[in-house]
Design a protein around this nucleic acid. Structure first.
Length: 556
RNA sequence: GCGCUUGUAGCUCAGUGGAUAGAGCGCAGGGUUGCGGACCCUGAGGUCGCGGGUUCGAGUCCCGCCAAGCGUACCA
């Protein structure tokens, strides 16, 4: 159990005791929150409970704090419980205990930082899921990094995580895609053909069609049009998916499941989902189409699920898909990461979950806001249809995978980003990515030196680590489990990059203040202790970098 | 028009209803006869978009206004 939770328990017991003995009156106790104070002089942990209780208890916050603090049981590693104006209770942790935790970090090794919040719950995280009709661009990169980072962190927070990509391999846009390839194909064979008005204009389509022409020769010329388009759809889909997968690998994003939209219709999931909605009265026939009556669930308007042509809409597929996720495959929780252009879709999707009879809080939809690309002052438009775009591939080639991941992971999903390509390149020599990685490389350098000199620090005595900078570094290292738990609860991975910068800062300061491998005679003991601390710090930094999908360079 | 999101230092962004609002970059200065100077320290820089409200306490919650992005399809 995390220390902050243990302290919350002790405070709760203290309140109970105070009420029993009449020091505090009877009232219902709210959830006890334990915070990390900003200033060191306020201790390692703090609670503002007395301030919150003042009204219910009809006492001054200070009087509550004074009455409560002595009734909070002190146990290892809590050293002091102090009351501070205007009504805080601060907790100080024993420094001896902090120092001993260096051993604990080393023992846990690569597992350090893991917590058991999820208790093995099955959680699915679906992200990217870009239509396989064109290459990934910068906005997709943000969602990809966000999803993969979140998935990694949930996995070490005790969840059974499955990463999924939903392939829109059917529907009108896929048709337009196939007919576009067909048009290029005909043109390449000297036939009179034009790209349909709803077709895809990017130059990548020309390249793709060119590959098809080369590989397939003229065998589609004699085929009936429908048959040829259908075959080209399959070929084009496979090629696009392959290219998308390659792009994702460049920023270290991988999936456990690639899920086909078409399979929802082949497996009967679509019918099953519609039967449930029909059975509970959420489907209505009107104007020749079938509607999901979302107004009955508080939505602004109803939505078409089956067009008057008989073809199901994208929304219908999504209903079936969520039936499959929640009811058929039965994930305990489902997280969708969608781009801001799908934001109008969120509330009706939530309504669907209720209409299917599932608990509403099993589905969480995270909207990742737009990335506005700029080159200096000029805004670069992102449009798949005109072919004028900055692809993920170009971005990674220009800025690098590590910087790309760190940059996207550092910002909250909800904030719109300005991504200035010139600035990103200009700052690449002096940015947090290098700051963190340099800390790691420094550590690696120290450990190399230690090894060259044959220094064995296994017997190092961590109780010698009394320097201010040493204790500060240890305090920072010990925050990781709380950070991971916090991210798993809030689903906001941006706290990890921020934390990692703080950890690197603490290390750089320690390095500045404390010579690790000393040449002075008589310093053997402190050298061994500091090597131990350095190695423990390497463990924590490596864990952070690995969770963020970034490399940990031994040299730079 | 309506809906969702956003507005914090010159720039890019953090900030659980709590203690003196933070970081990086940029700017101005300073530092280590030694483990890698891609580092460290100090400083300047803020009406937290504007106006009300709730609260012991608001950058954070509520209402109104202003500005920006996105959505508002029998597209996805």
């Amino acid at each position: 159990m995390l220390l902050k939770h243990r302290i919350a328990q002790l405070v709760a017991q203290g309140v109970e005791e105070a009420q029993r003995s009449g020091v505090l009156p009877q009232f219902s106790v709210p959830e006890i929150e334990i915070e990390r104070p900003q200033l060191l002089e306020h201790g390692d942990f703090a609670t503002s409970l007395p301030l919150r209780l003042a009204r219910a208890a009809r006492m001054s916050p200070m009087a509550i704090a004074e009455g409560l603090a002595p009734r909070i049981a002190i146990e290892e590693p809590i050293e002091r419980v102090e009351v501070a104006s205007p009504g805080f209770i601060n907790f100080a942790i024993s420094q001896d205990w902090l120092r001993q935790q260096v051993e604990s970090v080393l023992e846990q090794g690569e597992a350090y930082g893991s917590v058991d919040l999820g208790e093995g719950q099955r959680i699915q995280i679906e992200f990217v899921s870009v239509n396989p009709t064109g290459p990934l661009h910068v906005g997709h990169a943000r969602g990809a990094v966000l999803g993969s980072g979140l998935a990694s962190i949930l996995a070490v927070a005790g969840y059974d995580v499955s990463r999924e990509y939903y392939i829109n391999d059917t529907g009108t846009q896929m048709d337009a895609f196939a007919r576009t390839i067909y048009a290029h194909y005909l043109q390449a064979h000297g036939r009179d053909a034009e790209v349909p008005p709803d077709g895809y204009m990017g130059s990548y389509m020309v390249d793709l069609a060119g590959e098809v022409v080369e590989r397939e020769k003229d065998r589609f010329l004699t085929m009936p049009v429908d048959e040829a388009v259908s075959a080209l759809r399959e070929i084009g889909l496979k090629k696009m998916l392959g290219s998308i997968r390659e792009d994702l690998e460049r920023i270290r994003v991988e999936f456990d499941v690639w899920f086909s939209e078409q399979s929802l219709y082949d497996s009967g999931d679509y019918e099953a989902a519609m039967d449930i909605l029909r059975g509970s009265g959420y489907l209505a026939e009107r104007e020749g189409a079938t509607w999901f009556t979302s107004t009955a669930l508080g939505e602004d308007k109803d939505n078409v699920v089956v067009r008057s042509t008989g073809a199901p809409t994208y929304f219908a597929s999504d209903i079936a898909y969520h039936y499959n996720k929640l009811l058929k495959r039965g994930y305990d929780r489902v997280v969708n990461i969608w781009g801001a252009d799908h934001q109008g879709h969120v509330s009706r999707m939530n309504a669907v979950v209720g209409a299917l009879g599932a608990d509403a809080d099993r589905l969480t939809i995270i909207i990742s806001q737009m990335v506005a690309l700029k080159r200096g002052e000029e805004t670069v438009r992102i449009s798949k249809r005109t072919g004028d775009l900055i692809t993920l591939r170009e971005l990674v080639d220009e800025v690098g995978s590590d910087a790309c991941r760190f940059f996207f992971l550092s910002r909250t999903a909800g904030s719109q980003m300005d991504f200035d390509l010139e600035l990103a390149k200009k700052e690449s020599d002096d940015n947090p990515v290098y700051y963190i990685q340099y800390a790691y490389a420094r550590i690696a350098g120290i450990m190399r030196l230690a090894q060259e000199r044959g220094l064995d620090y296994a017997q190092g005595d961590v109780s010698l680590l009394t320097h201010e900078a040493e204790v500060a570094l240890i305090r920072n290292m010990l925050l990781l489990p709380e950070i991971i738990e916090g991210i798993a609860l809030s689903l906001e991975p941006h706290h990890l990059p921020r934390y990692t910068v703080e950890l690197a800062t603490a290390f750089h300061w320690f390095y500045q203040q404390c010579r690790v491998v000393s040449n002075e005679p008589g310093d053997e003991a402190i050298t061994q202790a500091r090597l131990k601390l350095t190695e423990a710090c390497r463990t924590v930094l490596a864990r952070c970098l690995s969770l963020m999908g970034m490399s940990a360079p031994e040299r730079m």
